[in-house]
């Protein structure tokens, strides 16, 4: 009797990338911008990030425990959601609101729809929108960088579209010395994170490029400051880290182009014509809902496809 052998269906080798590895890469890519946010907005931003990240993981853990499902916190997807949510909040937000945000993201948006890979909208972003609608004052209480006290300041975006006078230069906006949410201020560091993800082949650059490009082009036509428009608000964070979420973005390259351009157009329309100063979250949410349809119309035909015979 010879020894027992492993018998499996082919292929017998696998690419080293894992779900956990991908999520870890996303966290690594987010870190520079997150750390920068903690530096300019003080210790409280670090606390907000810690609260959202920890509560997101805890909610995922509890959900699996209560529903008697296999534990999935190890795949780190809840951690990514928590960190992205924290980066989308102002540093002044009360902790209990941040925890509500995590609850909405993990339990309502993600787990109610079937967990990892089954949510129709980006959890962190939907949670941000829910908080925005519920607590508009707390969600827009931004702090001037390096301020000793919490002094609310108008974001450059509000000034760009004529609601206040601009005090931020393009250079400041690009490197992140401006008011805003914890992780969204530094376009420079977010782009570095994005380039890291593209090099690691985690994300495809089509969506961010189309998204940002569309906003830039549209702003060019209206004669506003293009660079300021793309470096301020949540555009970089949203386009690089939230619009590229696998589950809620189209599969094919053509689909990704449609998705990116659509996001850009809606962002521009909201910024330009609506009463809200920022439109990135809403644009991504609206396009998320269209993803199944985009996937359907851009579906590629198999190689050597022949149309099935009638009456078969």
């Amino acid at each position: 009797m010879s020894k027992l052998l492993n018998v499996a269906s082919s292929p017998h080798m696998r690419h080293p990338d894992t779900t956990r590895g991908i999520m870890l890469d996303v966290v690594i890519a987010l870190l520079p911008a997150a750390v920068f946010g903690c530096v300019i907005f003080g210790w409280r931003s670090a606390a907000v990030l810690a609260v959202t990240a920890a509560s997101a993981v805890v909610f995922e853990y509890l959900w699996n425990l209560i529903c008697k499902k296999p534990q999935t916190v190890g795949d780190l997807s809840a951690l990514v959601t928590g960190v992205i949510l924290g980066m989308n909040l102002p540093s002044t937000i009360p902790f209990w609101m941040a925890i509500i945000g995590s609850f909405i993201a993990i339990i309502i948006v993600k787990q109610f729809f079937g967990g990892l890979g089954h949510n129709f909208a980006n959890p962190a972003m939907t949670a941000r929108i829910a908080l925005m609608v519920s607590f508009p004052a707390a969600m827009t209480k931004f702090v001037t960088p390096f301020a000793v006290d919490a002094i609310s300041s108008a974001t450059p975006l509000a000034s760009l579209y004529g609601e206040a006078t601009s005090t931020v230069s393009i250079k400041e906006a690009f490197f992140g010395l401006q008011g805003g949410c914890i992780g969204e201020t530094s376009a420079f560091l977010l782009i570095i994170g994005g380039i890291y993800l593209v090099i690691r082949r985690i994300i495809n650059p089509i969506i961010p490029v189309c998204f940002i490009g569309t906003v830039a082009l549209a702003t060019l036509f209206t004669g506003d400051n293009v660079l300021l428009a793309i470096c301020s608000g949540g555009l970089m964070l949203g386009s690089i880290f939230m619009a590229t979420d696998y589950t809620t973005s189209p599969t094919t390259n053509l689909g990704k182009i449609i998705f990116g351009v659509g996001c850009g157009l809606i962002t521009f329309i909201i910024r330009q014509f609506a009463s809200l100063p920022e439109g990135v979250s809403y644009s991504i949410l609206l396009m998320n809902i269209l993803v199944p349809y985009i996937n359907r119309i851009t579906e590629h035909k198999p190689f050597g496809y022949v149309k099935a015979k009638e009456g078969k």
Binding site: T18, T19, R20, I22, T72, D75, S77, G115, L116, G117, H118, Y246, T247, T251, T252
Partner: peptide, 8 residues
């Protein structure tokens, strides 16, 4: 295995 993350 984990759930499909729909990376495509």
């Amino acid at each position: 295995t984990t759930a499909c993350i729909r990376c495509g």
